[in-house]
Write a protein that binds this DNA or RNA. Structure first.
Lengths: 156, 156
DNA sequence: CGAGGTTGGTTCGTAATGCAAATCATCATC
DNA sequence: GATGATGATTTGCATTACGAACCAACCTCG
């Protein structure tokens, strides 16, 4: 089925898979620069918009709760996040960024954006928008790693 | 900070990041179904087109050689690949799929394709092609995880 | 109220992943 | 044949991830 056409001829899914690897690699690079692991960076970035509970984190990351416990443990040990008891339900811990954690999260997040934009600098804005909207339409079918406003901690 | 626009408004890079997570998740699902880990599946799929040496694998995966040694060890222990001495240079081991490994690799590969295609079934072929070509143009700037014909083991 | 079940998180044990430094064996060259 | 470069492994360590068992706080219902 495949001939010797290299990357110039590539299926849609193969393109997605390779793009995924590229993104992972960018995350790995950025994480390395900031002395944390990729998973830790992703956790920190997820918390930029506000604290999240353990169970919700496990759903967002598609990981077991015990995995999240370990991840938060290690990031907390580095002083980047804190466990804050929820007043309404004393079982839940809201995971919140510390000052240091916020600084690192924002910087790393900007780095990722910067590097990905640099990689895509040959694409026109229109092309980028088209890709983004196509991706979004796929994502909306399977809400993945998405934090909708309704999921945000309510103040009421 | 954002209003109630959920995923409908999303930056290009954010879309890439989330798509990457989706792809990783698909890999995780497929791997789980086949009783192997995502990394192992990726290794097997990489070998479908023919055996590869350890050093070349470490470059393709952007991992240290010692990490590849461990990965190959575990997959070999399951009887999915074998280390074959290279006749021309007896230092190198070519990693080749066994029959069982080939079967699993092909099945898993097809599963990944199938699931990703299913996710993207709302996109027109034209849209898919556009996304693929945009992605390819980005990838070509930074050859990632790509095995070009020139990288294949030569017979000469 | 209080027993019983559910839910949020942690603990424990285990396996896989990944790095870095040191080591071994084979090439390659002079 | 000594020397150095290269391919791969070994060792030790931290991280990541799962699953099952567990505890504590919540909720419901009699």
């Amino acid at each position: 089925m495949t001939t010797t056409e290299a990357t110039t001829e590539l299926g849609f899914t193969a393109a997605l898979v390779r793009m995924s690897h590229l993104v992972q690699h960018v995350f790995a690079d950025v994480s390395h620069d900031h002395e944390v692991t990729p998973q830790q960076v992703q956790l920190l970035c997820m918390l930029i918009d506000g604290p999240i509970g353990m169970t919700e984190l496990s759903q967002l990351f598609h990981l077991e709760k015990s995995s999240i416990t370990g991840l938060v443990d290690r990031v907390e040990r580095r002083g980047l996040v804190t466990r804050v008891r929820d007043g309404r339900d004393r079982r839940v811990y809201q995971i919140a960024l510390t000052g240091e954690g916020t600084r690192l999260a924002v910087e790393a997040h900007e780095d990722v954006i910067r590097r990905l934009d640099a990689l895509a600098k040959d694409l026109s804005d229109a092309e980028k928008a088209r890709v983004a909207s196509a991706v979004v339409s796929v994502l909306d079918r399977h809400g993945v790693f998405t934090r909708r406003p309704g999921d945000l901690p309510r103040e009421s």
